[in-house]
Design a protein around this nucleic acid. Structure first.
Lengths: 261, 261
DNA sequence: GGCCCTAACAACGA
DNA sequence: CTCGTTGTTAGGGC
């Protein structure tokens, strides 16, 4: 569930909680997915100190003073948990658990077990983060995939990092562009308003989350979204919200959003 | 345009005309597509006698007493021509021309130049010919590609050889099965009636062509088709003919044909 | 709500 | 009316 704003706040809060701490024991539960053996993972982390926690696209990375990087993708149902070594056994659906020498603990949980954990992942082609995309880059993407629906293009993690199915609807509503528009048909003005809406919507959400849920490291909070919400009937400007599948994804939008095609 | 029935009669008539003759000069016009050099082609054929002409799927093969095989695919607009060496220069859109020692000549023509000519083509995975498909084989195909539309499955040359866009509509009407049925949803009875309709429709067409156009080696004759015809309004049993694209192909069918899905 | 793999489908060119 | 190749989409599994 979590998208860029949630993950950004998770990373901030995780950093406050664990940077500087020294890892003690590392355990991985076979329910999850790991790119190395459990022994290799424990060997690379045990005894080292966390130096940073950062978000990259939809993943959260932990770095250590021994140069290791641990990357976590929560997928649909994963979450973090800050607890103590003593309480770890009570945790539901644990995937990864790290205890620190001060007795505190960090865990990744996931009822579905789809979360992925990677130790020192191979460097990938760097995809621009959603908070960094320029109008020029967006224009390039639209020209390169002219027939793709704009919604499908924006949530493609190979093109832009961090936008998921919920916030893309917010962004498109903010820019007043229909999710079913063909990317290649967007005029420059529409691309420009989209380029503006992306960071605006995401930064606003980050602000809301920091204020409303200052300690969050898991879960979704969407009560301030403007259109992507099952309980809403109308957009803030009074237009009825249409609920429909677009590119096989549940989509909320209104007739206020212009369809280019 | 030609499909299995046309090509079958072409091959019969070509066999009557050229088997036993000795090739003299072989010329290939660069407009067409050839799997070897023109010199290689001429070298392999000149001086040898034609021993057989056969249809394989939608292709026509010529065999020689020196063990060569020449395979021709006419694509959309190609055709054969039986003429004389003297008349060859008057031929429109020639692709391949072979003169024989008795002064007669055989040519492949194609205004679009898409026809393909292959000398000793690499042996391919043998695909069952449409005249040979059993109900069991058809059932296997339907089970293996359950989501494919039945029309798309039947004209896939990698699965069954010889059925094209015109005769598939005739076959499906004969079997009273909608072209938009999902292959995997056909009950055994429908598969059985389809297995019966395929050779029935094709053999009937071969008979019609032999009778109506006893010397044909090119062109299309479709005046006896029952549904795949732009000029028809109703099927033989009086149902209005629906004209619609199915899997991006022009399709003629009626409500008499049951939709399984 | 996420991502990957595969199959089916549409568009274009030869 | 043909057959490729390519890009986009839809579905199921993890």
């Amino acid at each position: 569930m979590p998208e860029l704003p949630d993950l950004t706040v998770y990373a901030e809060n995780l950093a406050k909680a664990v940077v500087g701490k020294q890892a003690d024991r590392v355990t991985f539960h076979k329910s999850g997915r790991l790119n190395v053996s459990e022994g290799e993972l424990a060997g690379a982390l045990a005894g080292s100190r966390v130096t940073a926690v950062e978000r990259t696209g939809k993943q959260v990375s932990f770095r250590t003073d021994k140069g290791a990087e641990l990357r976590v993708h929560l997928m649909l149902t994963g979450g973090f948990a800050l607890t103590s070594a003593a309480e770890l056994p009570r945790l539901d659906a644990p995937v990864l658990a790290i205890t620190f020498t001060d007795g505190s603990a960090l865990a990744v949980t996931d009822p579905k077990g789809w979360a992925t954990v990677s130790l020192n992942p191979a460097a990938e082609a760097k995809v621009p983060d959603a908070l960094q995309v320029s109008a020029e880059y967006l224009q390039q993407l639209c020209s390169k995939k002219p027939k793709a629906l704009i919604k499908a293009l924006l949530i493609d993690q190979a093109l832009i990092g961090g936008i998921g199915n919920a916030y893309v609807d917010e962004i498109l509503w903010q820019a007043r562009i229909s999710p079913k528009s063909a990317a290649g048909k967007l005029p420059p003005e529409a691309v420009a308003s989209l380029a503006k809406a992306i960071p605006a919507v995401l930064q606003d959400a980050i602000g809301e989350l920091r204020k409303r849920h200052p300690d969050m490291v898991s879960g979704e909070y969407r009560e301030f979204l403007k259109v992507h919400r099952p309980d809403l009937q109308k957009s803030p400007t009074g237009a009825p919200i249409i609920k429909e599948n677009v590119s096989s994804k549940r989509t909320y939008y209104t007739e206020e959003q212009r369809l280019y095609r």
